[in-house]
Design a protein around this nucleic acid. Structure first.
Length: 501
RNA sequence: GUCCCCGUCGUCUAGCCCGGCCUAGGACAUCGCCCUUUCACGGCGGUAACACGGGUUCAAAUCCCGUCGGGGACGCCA
């Protein structure tokens, strides 16, 4: 009994583009459900659309899922007990089932030309009627139909929708009912002989013994047709769970015009996979109590339940994702963040592609210094400008900065500072502090009046990391061989003074 | 147009199924204060929602009806 009742769910993407965030969320909910129930999670590639499917998208899809931390028990790469996991080779099976349906009188040949159908459809729409198929070929005599086919007339195959309401259960939405009067007899095999999605998906799910179909709610209106296929074929109807749509900030479906929408996008931005997973899980699902936000993978598996999935659509909130990302960056081991951060700096060409021990230690410190300031790791390159850039006239050109130096005292501080660091001796944090004390005594400047000018002089902004960490880092960096020379404190001070005039 | 789904702070949501414990809780964002030689982090606090209208009931965010609003589907696409 246990074996037969084992939960089996699947994620069935078409490899026609980058893995969309809405789709991974569907994959994630399937996966979470399977993990929690001790069931199987199956990856099936829907590549019947030969025109748009590409192998490289399949490869990337697999990579993205693995990066996120989702794995599967059966799939095109792993195999499994119910192959194939790509739809390609099953054409024969689909046709055999269709022939059986015809013999049993549950399906029929339809000779209506596509153009005529299209005309009827438009007409119905214009008259504000439900645009469903007229049923013209529904009661054609089978022998007659066979004869016409034999004489070369093209025919599609349609399923007869039974004349009673179609009901199904949806875990998220409860019982759903459609009147048979609003659903057309669906074409299941094109006149070209190629089967149609709504038909194929049922056979695949049934063949793979799928127990719960968890998918996007754009499929909800397809479901009655699919239920009709199950019933015509005498196959057990699975449980359904239709997940709400993910919206962009303007309330429309999340799409490219809203910015990042694919897993690959987020990965490149330096979003940690556990942050994305945590965020996505909370989009449309919440634990009872609803007062916890941080859910590592294992907690998610423990707490997740389909019954608690929200039926209403959810707006994707980048800020909250960032908040979680910051959290997970703080939680991560320094080594991991060093590695990821170094990759970002390498990509920007700030540090060499391969670093030796000396440089790598320094790069690690740079990342440590800057990581607490970022939402996502790719911001490291922007933040690193304070180390790598040091452009004095650009700093002075910023109105905010210029304002600081409009004050005579600020200029005095800058001059006093430059004079003292010119002396050539290594500038440690201690020495820096001593210098600042001297300047304080000499100029009478203190607090912001003292520190802002110096900060602007060194990093081009009056705010930034603690000097005690920053100074040694700049000094150490200036001694290293890097693609972009890191200017020492002395160099910075001199250039700034020159620019100040 | 027809059908289906959805409707709690700006956003994600708890509460709704099993009315009273809800003067509606948490989180992100936002605002203020504290910490700090700066900024950020962190700590503390504030602003902010039951779409609307009827009904049922001693009592409704919770149940019923209607309206409005948003989304989706109606295909020889998936």
């Amino acid at each position: 009994m246990a074996a037969n009742n084992k939960v089996r769910v699947r994620f069935a993407p078409s490899p026609t583009g980058q893995l969309h965030i809405g789709n991974v969320r569907t994959a994630l909910f399937n996966w979470l459900f399977a993990q929690q129930k001790g069931g199987a999670f199956i990856l099936r590639i829907e590549d019947t659309d030969v025109e748009r499917s590409e192998a490289r998208y399949e490869t990337q899809l697999i990579e993205d899922m693995k990066w996120l931390g989702i794995d599967w028990d059966e799939g095109p790469d792993l195999g499994g007990p119910y192959p194939p996991y790509r739809q390609s080779d099953k054409m024969r099976v689909y046709r055999e089932y269709a022939e059986r349906l015809i013999k049993e009188g549950k399906a029929y040949y339809c000779f209506c030309p596509a153009e005529e159908l299209e005309r009827e459809r438009e007409q119905a729409l214009k008259e504000q009627r439900q645009p469903i198929y007229s049923g013209k070929c529904r009661n054609l005599d089978l022998a007659e139909a066979e004869r016409r086919r034999a004489s070369g007339e093209a025919a599609a195959i349609r399923l007869k929708i039974p004349e009673h309401p179609i009901r199904f259960h949806d875990i998220v939405r409860g019982d759903v009912e459609f009147s048979h009067e609003v659903v057309s007899d669906p074409i299941i095999i094109r006149s070209s002989g190629m089967p149609i999605y709504n038909y194929v998906v049922v056979i695949d799910d049934a063949d793979m013994k799928i127990t719960h179909v968890i998918r996007g709610d754009d499929h909800i209106s397809n479901t009655p047709k699919q239920v009709a296929v199950y019933e015509a074929l005498g196959l057990p109807v699975p449980e359904f769970a239709h997940l709400s749509t993910i919206l962009g900030p303007d309330g429309g479906r999340l799409s490219k015009r809203h910015g990042a929408t694919s897993v690959a996008n987020f990965r490149e931005m330096g979003i940690l996979p556990e942050a994305l997973m945590n965020y996505l899980a909370l989009l449309g699902w919440a634990p009872s109590g609803g007062d916890r936000e941080i859910f590592p993978k294992d907690e998610l598996i423990k707490e997740f339940s389909l019954e608690r999935v929200t039926p209403s659509p959810a707006v994707f909130d980048t800020e909250k994702l960032y908040w979680l990302n910051r959290h997970y960056i703080k939680q991560s081991s320094p080594e991991r963040i060093h590695q990821l951060g170094a990759e970002m700096l390498q990509r920007a060409g700030l540090v060499p592609a391969s670093v030796n021990g000396n440089v790598s230690g320094w790069v690690g410190s740079v990342v440590d210094l800057l990581a607490p300031y970022v939402d996502k790791l790719d911001q490291l390159t922007e933040k690193a400008k304070i180390i790598f850039d040091g452009n004095a006239s650009a700093a002075l050109a910023v109105p905010e900065n210029a304002e600081v130096f409009a004050n005579e005292k600020a200029r005095a501080v800058a001059q006093a500072f430059a004079k003292r660091v010119a002396a050539g001796q290594a500038l440690t944090a201690e020495r820096f502090k001593a210098i600042m004390d001297e300047i304080k005594a000499e100029t009478g400047a203190k607090g912001k009046d003292l520190f802002h000018p110096v900060r602007i002089m060194l990093i081009g902004s009056h705010s930034g990391p603690d000097f005690n960490k920053l100074i040694p880092l700049i000094e150490d960096g200036s001694k290293l061989e890097l693609p972009t020379h890191v200017k020492s404190v002395r160099e910075r001070a001199e250039e700034f003074l020159a620019a100040m005039g």
